[in-house]
Design a protein around this nucleic acid. Structure first.
Lengths: 206, 206
DNA sequence: GTCTATAATCTGATAGAC
DNA sequence: GTCTATCAGATTATAGAC
């Protein structure tokens, strides 16, 4: 089945490309390094992906899909602490499990998002508006302190994605060792608690 | 005075280089674009800076100096709310006033910090340890909730630097216009309040 | 579908006249 | 100190045999 060979090779190229783009950025990545890491001759990449930019866009599509999957965990609920906690935890897990995707996204934004401006303008913008409405509803119900919803969202994105994008710095400050699962889970719990404690309106019991 | 011509040209090259490195990253930046933006012929850059890497390192040195300047605002104090609030505000102001520096730093960390590993290992590590001790002291005094100091520091860094590193995304989600001074100052106040409210131990008055 | 050779382009860096 | 011309190397992409 030639189609399964094609699928298998595309997958291994995309996997290698995601790693190289994450480590070197779009301009720093070379087709030669991607080919070497995929275990294929360089010319073979161009058989499956016409250009470096097309390969990059395919990698980005996978990154955005994973982002959307975590974004789907932000659900309306009468309990904002539970809803926010679940979303923050999902974003922390995504940063832990797919750090390369987060780094590629960060690098793309740093460049001015030449390849994903449409995603920002449409999908992301609608998502932010709909989730902003949920936050506004919680505020109106007296469950959250008054706050610009985007400020809260940015803090959640920034903090969770930091564990992927700045993992090298975190490792250095951890004495050279990557965060253990235990340390990461402690951080995840503390991030959830710190943010929810910061936005939840103190109840009548103090 | 040849030395003042030299200083003036070095400054204009460094200024142009900071902009280009921030927009394109190290690999994406070209000496030709830096020269064009500095208003000098390309060969002239090599007269003042032998290599692209040396020019990049000089730019990075300025970035780290600005970072250290803001870091100095984190002082020991009997009032953690005031000390943390001042530090967070200083970091927000730095992100607003020198976004390019923050972006170059982020890009450098994403690459694995090949040029500033020494800074991370020495200066930054000592700074984090000393400030971590201050946070521990506040926790022991019952002023802050128990938390790993690095988790708090990472949240502050991530959130404040997000306003520089992800400014393009923020602009897009703001309808295409950069944040106004008013919106930014509102965000700054809310970030300070959200983080301090999250870590401060509720007093006896609730 | 695979792979070697190579074309075409870009870019960092230098030579050398002024 | 300045600047034009150019070299040398790297990199994307393609040609064409197998």
């Amino acid at each position: 089945m030639s189609s399964s060979i094609r699928a298998a090779h595309e997958d291994s190229i995309l996997l290698a490309a995601e790693a190289v783009f994450a480590e070197r950025g779009f301009d720093g990545a070379t087709m030669a390094e991607i080919a070497a890491r995929a275990g294929l001759p360089k010319a073979n990449l161009h058989y499956y992906f016409a250009t470096k930019a097309e390969l990059y866009r395919r990698v980005l599509a996978g990154v955005l899909n994973a982002w959307l999957s975590a974004a789907g965990t932000f659900e309306s609920s009468s309990d904002p602490a539970e809803a926010l906690g679940r979303y923050i935890a999902a974003k922390m897990d995504l940063a832990r499990q797919r750090p390369q995707g987060s780094r590629i996204f960060a690098s793309e934004i740093l460049r001015g998002a030449p390849e994903i401006q449409d995603f920002l303008d449409t999908t992301l913008r609608q998502w932010v508006e709909s989730r902003g409405s949920i936050v506004q509803k919680w505020i109106a119900a007296g469950a959250l302190k008054p706050i610009e919803p985007k400020t809260l969202l940015y803090m959640i994105w920034a903090t969770t994605q930091h564990y992927a994008d700045f993992a090298h710095q975190i490792t250095t400050l951890n004495g050279g060792d990557p965060l253990s699962d235990e340390d990461f889970n402690t951080a995840k719990r503390q991030v959830v608690e710190l943010i929810t404690a910061g936005v939840l309106r103190p109840g009548p019991k103090g």
